[in-house]
Simulated scan of single mutants.
Amino acid sequence: MRSLTQSVLRWPRPEQVLQEVQVWAAAQRRARPSLQRVGVFGSYGRGTASVGSDLDLLLIDERAVGPQHQRLRHWPLERLPLSCDALVLTPAELQELLAGGDRMARELRSDLRWLD
């Protein structure tokens, strides 16, 4: 009789993910003093994250320039515990975004949770 091998995948608990993101953010602040704030939004910001949730991350970098795809190259997102959708904004860009009425602005106003 042959035994089947099974793979068991474990998804990290939301508290564990947020703790690891805080450690990551602290390391990034030490490496790049222009990083002012780090926040999560979406399911982690709302407190509804569960198995399969990705991480939605907001980085406020006072020296961010260029399009998003270039801004993201400066951050080691692969060191985070989950796949991540990140947005890098300057403080002025964040204020402008939050003042708007689009879906992203509404989501950030309701779900954004700062980690500092």
Rank of each mutant, 00 (worst) to 15 (best):
M1V: 00
L4V: 11
L4C: 00
S7L: 09
V8G: 01
V8F: 11
V8P: 02
L9M: 12
W11P: 03
P14D: 04
P14R: 05
E15P: 01
E15A: 08
L18N: 09
Q19R: 15
E20W: 12
V21H: 09
Q22L: 12
V23Y: 00
V23C: 01
W24D: 03
W24C: 04
A26G: 14
A27L: 10
R30T: 11
R30Y: 08
R30V: 10
R32P: 02
R32S: 03
L35Q: 03
R37S: 02
V38A: 06
V40H: 06
F41M: 10
G42Y: 11
R46Y: 09
G47K: 10
T48K: 07
A49N: 06
S50V: 05
S50D: 12
G52Y: 03
D54E: 09
D56T: 10
L57P: 13
R63P: 00
P67E: 10
P67Q: 08
Q68I: 01
H69A: 08
R71S: 04
R71W: 04
R73F: 12
H74A: 15
H74C: 14
W75E: 13
L77K: 11
R79P: 07
L80P: 14
L82P: 08
S83F: 12
D85A: 11
L87S: 00
V88S: 04
V88K: 02
V88L: 02
V88N: 03
L89R: 11
L94C: 13
L97N: 08
L97C: 11
L98F: 07
L98Q: 09
G100M: 04
G101L: 08
A105H: 01
R109T: 03
L112N: 08
R113D: 03
